[in-house]
C-alpha cells in the first residue's frame, strides 16, 4: 500500500517537473524573442489566483434575488446589467443569464471545448473540462446531477445549454426559502459556483447560518 502510494507520487512529481521545465523553456524563448513580457504573465496568473472568481457571479445572483429591476435587466442583457453593477473593470459581450424556476432547471456545458463565463465565475474547474461531463451533460443531465448528489424535485424539466459560440451562460438559481430580509452580502454566501453552472443548488440557509 505504502509502496504503491510512493510510486504514484513519484510518477506524478516527475510529470510535473517535466512540464515545469518545458514551459520554462517555452517562456524563455518567447521572452528572448521579444514577444512577451514576463511581468504581464505574473499579472495574469495573479489576477486568476486572487481576483477573478465565482464570488463575482455570487454577488450578481444575490443582487438579482434582492432587486427585481436588476433581475429583469440581468435576464434581458446580462453583459449590460453586470457592467452596470460595477464589480468588474469591464464585461465582455454576449453574457446570458438563464433563470431556474420550479418547473425548469438549467445546466451549462461546452461539449466542444471549455467555453465558460470566466469573467463572472473565474476559470472552469477540471470536471467542467473533462470528457465525462462534456459527453454526458447533453444526453444524461439527470445522471450528471446524480454524480453531484443533486436530485431535482419531481416535475422539474431540464434545459441544457451547449456553449457552441461566443455567447456565455450563467444560471440564475432560485432563491432559497427562509432568507427573507437577508442582505445581499449574506445571500451571496449561499450562491455556490456549481449553482451558477447548474450542477448544484444554492446552500441551505439553515446550514449556512
Amino acid at each position: 500500500m505504502t509502496h504503491e502510494h510512493d510510486d504514484h507520487d513519484h510518477e506524478h512529481g516527475s510529470e510535473l517537473s517535466e512540464m515545469q521545465l518545458r514551459v520554462r523553456a517555452l517562456e524563455t524563448v518567447l521572452a528572448e524573442k521579444g514577444y512577451i513580457d514576463q511581468a504581464a504573465l505574473d499579472a495574469i496568473v495573479e489576477a486568476y489566483e486572487t481576483k477573478v472568481g465565482p464570488h463575482t457571479g455570487a454577488r450578481v445572483v444575490a443582487k438579482a434575488w434582492s432587486d427585481p429591476a436588476f433581475k429583469e435587466a440581468l435576464l434581458a442583457d446580462a453583459s449590460k446589467a453586470v457592467a452596470s453593477f460595477g464589480l468588474l473593470n469591464r464585461v465582455g459581450d454576449h453574457l446570458i443569464a438563464v433563470e431556474n424556476t420550479p418547473k425548469r432547471h438549467n445546466m451549462i456545458v461546452c461539449t466542444l471545448c471549455s467555453c465558460y463565463p470566466w469573467e463572472v465565475l473565474g476559470l472552469p474547474p477540471v470536471w467542467y473540462k473533462s470528457a465525462p461531463y462534456r459527453s454526458r451533460a447533453v444526453s444524461d443531465p439527470r445522471g450528471v446531477l446524480a454524480d453531484f448528489g443533486v436530485k431535482l424535485p419531481a416535475g422539474t424539466d431540464i434545459r441544457v445549454w451547449d456553449s457552441t459560440a461566443e455567447t456565455r451562460f450563467i444560471v440564475l438559481p432560485m432563491r432559497p426559502a427562509g432568507t427573507d430580509g437577508w442582505s445581499e452580502e449574506r445571500l451571496a454566501m449561499l450562491v455556490t459556483r456549481n449553482s451558477m453552472i447548474g450542477t448544484g443548488l444554492p446552500k441551505d440557509p439553515k446550514e449556512a447560518a
Binding site: 510535473l16 515545469q20 517555452l26 470536471w127 454524480d147
Partner: peptide
C-alpha cells in the same frame, strides 16, 4: 462518472498558470 474535486485550486501546478498566461 463526473468526479468533482473538493477544494480544487485555481492551478494544480505553477506551470499551468504560466501556460494560461503564455
Amino acid at each position: 462518472k463526473v468526479e468533482p474535486e473538493r477544494d480544487e485550486p485555481v492551478f494544480h501546478a505553477p506551470w499551468e498558470g504560466r501556460t494560461l498566461a503564455l
